[in-house]
Simulated scan of single mutants.
Amino acid sequence: MAAKKNREKPAGENPRRPCPCGSGKRYKACHGAGDDVIVTRPFAGLAAEPDLVAMREFLPSALAPLPLAAPLEVPVTVATVLPGASAAMVRQDGSILLGMQVQTRSGDLSADLAKALRWAQTAEPGSALPVVGPGLAGEVTRLQDVLDAAAPLDLTLHQDFGWWIPEDAEDSAEVTATLERANSVIMPTEAVDGVRAAYWVDTGSKAHLRWVRPESEDALMAALARLHAAGELELGEGTRYAGAFRAHGLLVPVWDLDREMHAKEWAAPAQAFATRLDQALARTGDLSTAERSARDALAGKQVTLR
């Protein structure tokens, strides 16, 4: 219970800040007033943005300490998914877990996570928040209000969900069955060494590289078009640029890979591509005719996730 008493309210609430939906209104008078406005880029302005998008959309089992601007006296960890797809959990030791992949959400994932954190700060140890709903009253905050904006996430990927169960928890047939069901659907996933927010994923029939990029879509598409026109878009022999999906305001390019190669073998090709991409992003001026054609072709390989 001591941990509960020592928890503090996050700092940084600013009801006069502009709404991230782009309406031009103050957040409190727009989305903060309860309107279900869709914030297309909920984690904008955070160095952790690519990490949060990856955790939300395709990483199966991962944890990261949440870099709060004003750290609490209990650890706060963000997780890909919690038991029951809960929004938050408070363990018996007072530590807090926030879930990225939840059952329901509002139009602003950033506000949902901040809401779940606020709930956890006053919740009893051993409790869980199934969903973030309108019952959580009070001034609306967002992750941008409570995080160190310059800090990326220090992600740890796991090959199963064993971390769901605290070490001192008692075994039971129900817990064992739940873990077995969750572990059976995990797709093997590994971070690509030396490349930020790039992940090797084995879907069972194919292997992919999925890479969350922080640039604006226009800038990234222009750079990819330049590389495509120059024949430099692939990662090497046996690879194919499959397309890209939009997720929470960012573009995630995807490559098909040779499934027979180990995940670590893609580090050097990905790092070499990263160098080429940085050079293409630094180029200015209009696209050539061939590059415009390449951009149009790449645009046909994009989908948007919600």
Rank of each mutant, 00 (worst) to 15 (best):
residue 294 A to R: 07
residue 177 A to I: 00
residue 205 S to Y: 07
residue 87 A to T: 08
residue 291 E to A: 11
residue 257 L to T: 05
residue 144 Q to P: 00
residue 232 E to S: 12
residue 250 L to P: 03
residue 29 A to Q: 14
residue 27 Y to F: 15
residue 173 A to V: 09
residue 90 V to R: 13
residue 104 T to I: 07
residue 261 M to D: 10
residue 131 V to I: 12
residue 66 L to I: 07
residue 199 Y to S: 03
residue 127 S to L: 09
residue 55 M to D: 07
residue 151 A to G: 00
residue 145 D to M: 02
residue 272 A to N: 12
residue 23 S to A: 13
residue 237 E to S: 13
residue 35 D to R: 15
residue 3 A to Q: 13
residue 79 A to W: 03
residue 281 L to W: 06
residue 19 C to P: 07
residue 1 M to F: 08
residue 45 G to M: 04
residue 303 V to L: 11
residue 204 G to W: 06
residue 168 D to F: 02
residue 218 D to P: 03
residue 146 V to Q: 14
residue 205 S to L: 12
residue 60 P to M: 12
residue 241 Y to L: 08
residue 65 P to D: 10
residue 21 C to Y: 03
residue 267 A to C: 04
residue 169 A to M: 04
residue 17 R to Q: 13
residue 200 W to R: 12
residue 32 G to R: 05
residue 133 G to D: 15
residue 138 G to I: 05
residue 280 A to P: 03
residue 135 G to V: 08
residue 207 A to P: 00
residue 285 G to K: 07
residue 3 A to C: 09
residue 72 L to M: 12
residue 75 P to M: 05
residue 235 L to S: 02
residue 189 T to S: 11
residue 135 G to A: 13
residue 19 C to W: 04
residue 27 Y to M: 05
residue 192 V to D: 01
residue 183 N to K: 11
residue 151 A to P: 00
residue 173 A to E: 13
residue 289 T to D: 14
residue 185 V to W: 04
residue 242 A to G: 03
residue 167 E to T: 05
residue 2 A to V: 10
residue 224 L to Y: 04
residue 53 V to E: 07
residue 183 N to H: 12
residue 236 G to K: 04
residue 296 D to P: 01
residue 257 L to P: 10
residue 19 C to S: 10
residue 135 G to L: 13
residue 292 R to D: 13
residue 68 L to F: 10
residue 306 R to E: 10
residue 65 P to R: 08
residue 42 P to D: 05
residue 272 A to I: 06
residue 264 K to W: 07
residue 94 G to W: 06
residue 188 P to G: 04
residue 245 F to R: 12
residue 72 L to V: 13
residue 164 W to C: 02
residue 79 A to P: 08
residue 99 G to T: 07
residue 291 E to V: 05
residue 306 R to F: 10
residue 233 L to Y: 03
residue 51 D to F: 01
residue 14 N to G: 01
residue 4 K to T: 13
residue 19 C to N: 06
residue 76 V to W: 01
residue 223 A to M: 10
residue 197 A to H: 09
residue 101 Q to M: 08
residue 67 P to L: 05
residue 51 D to A: 15
residue 215 E to I: 09
residue 196 R to H: 14
residue 181 R to P: 00
residue 166 P to M: 06
residue 37 V to Y: 09
residue 145 D to C: 12
residue 273 F to I: 01
residue 109 L to T: 02
residue 289 T to Y: 06
residue 43 F to N: 04
residue 226 R to V: 03
residue 100 M to P: 01
residue 249 G to C: 04
residue 181 R to C: 05
residue 53 V to F: 00
residue 174 E to P: 01
residue 224 L to A: 07
residue 142 R to E: 13
residue 91 R to D: 15
residue 228 H to V: 00
residue 163 W to G: 01
residue 73 E to D: 14
residue 282 A to R: 11
residue 295 R to H: 02
residue 156 T to W: 01
residue 213 R to F: 02
residue 175 V to K: 10
residue 193 D to H: 09
residue 185 V to F: 08
residue 158 H to F: 14
residue 42 P to L: 01
residue 190 E to N: 09
residue 240 R to E: 15
residue 176 T to Q: 11
residue 25 K to L: 14
residue 106 S to H: 14
